[in-house]
Each structure stands twice: as structure tokens, then as C-alpha cells.
Amino acid sequence: MNKILFFTIAAALIQSCTNKSDDRLPILGSREPVEKNVNGKTVVDTIYQTIPPFSYLNQDSIAVTDKDFDGKIYVSDFFFTSCTTICPVMHRNMLNVYNKYKGNPKIKFLSHSIDIKYDLPSRLKKYATKLGVEGNQWEFVHGSRDSIFGIAAKSYLVSAFEDSTDPQGLVHQGWFILVDTKKHLRGAYDGTKENQVKQLMLDIDKLLAEEAANEK
């Protein structure tokens, strides 16, 4: 009797170990359950946090909206051109990601400037060119104070604010946020750490594979 019990437990344990965990990336952010009525039965569905509509000006002074990111996987961050602390490190790393997916129509990059006053499109253009970025696969955008700081805190969950005690007057975090084709948050990576940025590239590949599987 004991033996049987032992073997069943052992078998269950081994099974649980070999059970492949779902290796899809999680959907981050807040979620709420909604009850739906499907064919007379009540089903609970989950609504995940999504990136709301937005409209900014990019480095070519062209309006960029959420529509330009429909059906795209994209990486978003917050920076400003005169920042000498973490931004150069972030964009040195982001440039590696950009160069890896350069020309891939499914991938985009969205860098929001938090320096509302000075980082006008002309200045963003100069910055992008000097960084070695052409075209609009990587958008550097300028927006109103509320639209930039609001979307940072509420939608991308990145802390960014104006602070008069800081030598440069602006404080922000260096997260790279990975957003999928349905505008769900799928990952957050410290853009100043090389190993996390490597993980970001692995996860972009994972998302690309997921999209390819969905299309079939």
C-alpha cells in the first residue's frame, strides 16, 4: 500500500517537473475581469491594460499616432537629448536593438522626450541623425507636458517627472517597455543594463514567433 502511494507521489512529482511551463511572455499591468454572456452562459473574461490613443510630433515634424503602431511590436522609452546621465547608456543599448531589427516592418521604436521645452522636432532630428538613425522605424517624439508625463506614468508605468532639485531639472527611469501588436505591455527591461537589453532582444524574437503562430 505504502509503495503504491510512494510511486504515485513520485510520478506526480516528476510529471510536474517535466510539465513545460507556458513560455509565452506574460501580459503586464492592471487587469479586470468582466462577465460576458456567451450562448446563455456567463463567462469570465479578462481585460488587460492597453496603451491608449496618442498623438505626437516626430523628428520630421510629422504627426505620429497610436495608429502608426497598430499591428506592430514596439519598444518604448523616455529620455531627453541633453541628458548626460542614463540616456546615453540607454540609447547606446537601444541602438544595438535597433540595428538588429533595422528594416523589419513588424518592429518599431518610440522614444518620448520629456524635455517639453527644448526638445522640439528639429532638435530631435539632429539627435537622431547624430545617433545614426534615419527613416521612421525609430520615432523620437515631442508632445505636450500632460500627454507625455501622463502616458509614462499611467500606461507605460515608467516614472518621469520635472524636479527642480535635480541638476538637469528632469528625473526619469530608464525602462525599455515592450509592447505587442495588441498594445499590451509584455516586458520591462532596464535600458542601462546590457544583459537586460539582451533579454529584450530574446523576448522580441519570442513575440515575433507568437505573432507568426497567430497569423497561421
Binding site: T84, T85, I86, P88, R92, K130, L131, G132
Partner: peptide, 15 residues
């Protein structure tokens, strides 16, 4: 290092 890089290579024509 943030601008000039750990390898001293700078960044594009920014730094």
C-alpha cells in the same frame, strides 16, 4: 563613461 562609453568609443556623432 555614460557618454564616452566603457570602451571610449563615444556614441555616433553625439559624443
Amino acid at each position: 563613461q555614460s557618454c564616452h562609453g566603457a570602451d571610449g568609443k563615444g556614441l555616433g556623432t553625439l559624443y
